[in-house]
Design a protein around this nucleic acid. Sequence first.
DNA 1: TAATTATTAGAACAAATGTACTAATTTTTA
DNA 2: TAAAAATTAGTACATTTGTTCTAATAATTA
Lengths: 207, 207
Amino acid sequence: MNTKEKIVEVALSLFNEKGTDSITVRHIAKEVGISHGNLCYHYPTTDDIIFKLYENLVAELNIEISKLPVNQVDLWMIYHSGKITFSLLYKYKFLMLDFVGIMRRIEAIRTHYRQLVVKRRLEFGMAMQFLEKGGYLKPEVIKDHYANIIEVNFIVGDFWVSRAEIMFEGPENEKLNYYLSLMFVPVLASLTEKGLVQYLEIMKELK
Amino acid sequence: MNTKEKIVEVALSLFNEKGTDSITVRHIAKEVGISHGNLCYHYPTTDDIIFKLYENLVAELNIEISKLPVNQVDLWMIYHSGKITFSLLYKYKFLMLDFVGIMRRIEAIRTHYRQLVVKRRLEFGMAMQFLEKGGYLKPEVIKDHYANIIEVNFIVGDFWVSRAEIMFEGPENEKLNYYLSLMFVPVLASLTEKGLVQYLEIMKELK
DNA sequence: TAATTATTAGAACAAATGTACTAATTTTTA
DNA sequence: TAAAAATTAGTACATTTGTTCTAATAATTA
């Protein structure tokens, strides 16, 4: 592994452990075992490293999501993509824990993330439509209800790591499964019989 | 207004504007128009001011919530207490925007908040029971579903300000109403006819 | 009033940090 | 191989920040 990669790797674990505020280029350099002059040659500021880590997260997400079979949209598919996403978000949890600070500070990330949300909102919307057509989800009775469910799930998806950090005592796996299960909560009472059956299967897997 | 109060007032607006990270005792002192030596006499560190502001938020919440009529629990009552809470959280939005950082850093706040959550969880649970008895909410069909809805709403309640900061363009009032309406989303499909009628009334008010 | 206490301004200092720079060494390229 | 480019260590300096201290002034109390 070259120096550039080592820096990013060490920075990730330091950020996850201590947060981005208290970690400086000097801390990272010391932990990598190089001079901070050298580190600044590769990444002038910690924000440059954070941006690189953000890029890595997005890249990993794209790779993993593209591996999913796209032939059918059902609750299992939602579950699998949720599982992958949640695992990766947890791997880069410092990004989630300091979400607002990073978004405020680093324009490149903010811009990219906003575009990502627009894209994801559409994908989610499509998925809901497929679920409805597939007989898993009842037709919407209240205007914008499913769009609102998506917004709620965006908030849960982006901030469950923060919530867990503050409130949850327990192993990572339990934590992840618990908050993943919460993603189904807003939609639960709108599921059809068929949808509910699949939901209960998924919950067995999550236990 | 005495110096101590002035400090807290100025600090609130500075924190809300710039975040807690970049604001130091010197910044606040300069803005108040006193020496930083004087400021440190009243509040040795910014964290002491943050704690004071947290106490103020909790006090204001208690006062406002206690003003609510407790004779009946219906969706309007949920709406009113939500409205009050959301307004106050927005007034102290820096606390919400740097929630994790503050919780990690300031033990006194972390401890108090955790106890608060336990208390609120019970209150929410009671409210759900009352809604059910009052004929607004269908009986729970899936185990822990209502407990899970409460958890989802905790996350939305604690992080909507962050979400809004990153994504929402628009006036404060719209912002507040929109995210307040999201609190009803997870429970919506579990409402009875009677509940739905009241919900639709509330939505008219929110528009 | 006189003594005491509270409040205020400002200086002083060490530690941390961002930033820029130099010089040496290693690696790559022509 | 020789020149060029990339990488590395280390220095240097201005700023910021937390912290402590002193001395002066204002307010309160006995």
